[in-house]
Amino acid sequence: MPARAGRSRRAGGLVLGLSTAYLTLIVLIPIAAVVASSFEGGLSAFWDEVTSPSAVAALELTFVASLLVVLVNAVTGTLIAWVLVRDDFRGKSVVNAIIDLPFALPTVVAGLTLLAVYGPKSPLGVDVAYSRAAIVVALLFVTLPFVVRAVQPVLLELDREMEEAAASLGSRPVTTFRRIILPNLLPAILSGAALSFGKAVGEFGSVVLISGNIPFDTEVASVHIFKSIEGDNPAGAAAVSVVLLVLSFAVLAVADVLERRSRRHDA
């Protein structure tokens, strides 16, 4: 038996070693290369790239558009989750299933179809192509599932006794929602919102066709990075990438904390 146990421990070590080697080769080395390249010319060169007018414009646009998208998502996502949990109608399971469509559909296809509906040949007569509004529409599409899927399970497990008590004491539905339901949903809404923000900040495929990528106007950060690479300025691309990297890490950390809090809440 001891020999067997020893062999098994070695095999366990081998599995861990192989996994770590794979992760290092695929993820760690490339990311290290980005960070190293951004600081190649020293801190001042990094700072110059990040504060160049076009980089600032792109980062600002990305940040503001993502924030706007998150606010819309917090409302519409909660609304959709509410309807999917509390309402009942024919075809509800289909509606529930298509919520994940933006995840399954390639982003470039999403961009193309949004351009068909909200572009120059719009059947609705709404043409927002090559404007900032187009960026918001594209980001709303790709981030749709996050808040819905975060709120849905919490709403499903929410105890309805409190609501009924409030209603029987004469509270109006709006008041019951605001005072009883919303506080319970808030951690889940915020966690879904944080994930939406993370996705929106780095989004490329759905935005690139519909936004027109006009510098200082509709060029988002990921397109700015793409253009810097094509323009043979890898250090500039890397510098803006590091800003996005730090931002996404911060957002992930926030989402993680909120997620844990929301789980404790409904436990």
Partner: peptide, 21 residues
């Protein structure tokens, strides 16, 4: 965090990283 990173990262940054290596 290495496992989570590819999800948090803009795909363009992934491309850039590979070019730099």
């Amino acid at each position: 965090s290495m496992i989570g990173l590819p999800l948090a990262l803009s795909p363009v940054v992934v491309g850039l990283a590979l070019i730099l290596v």
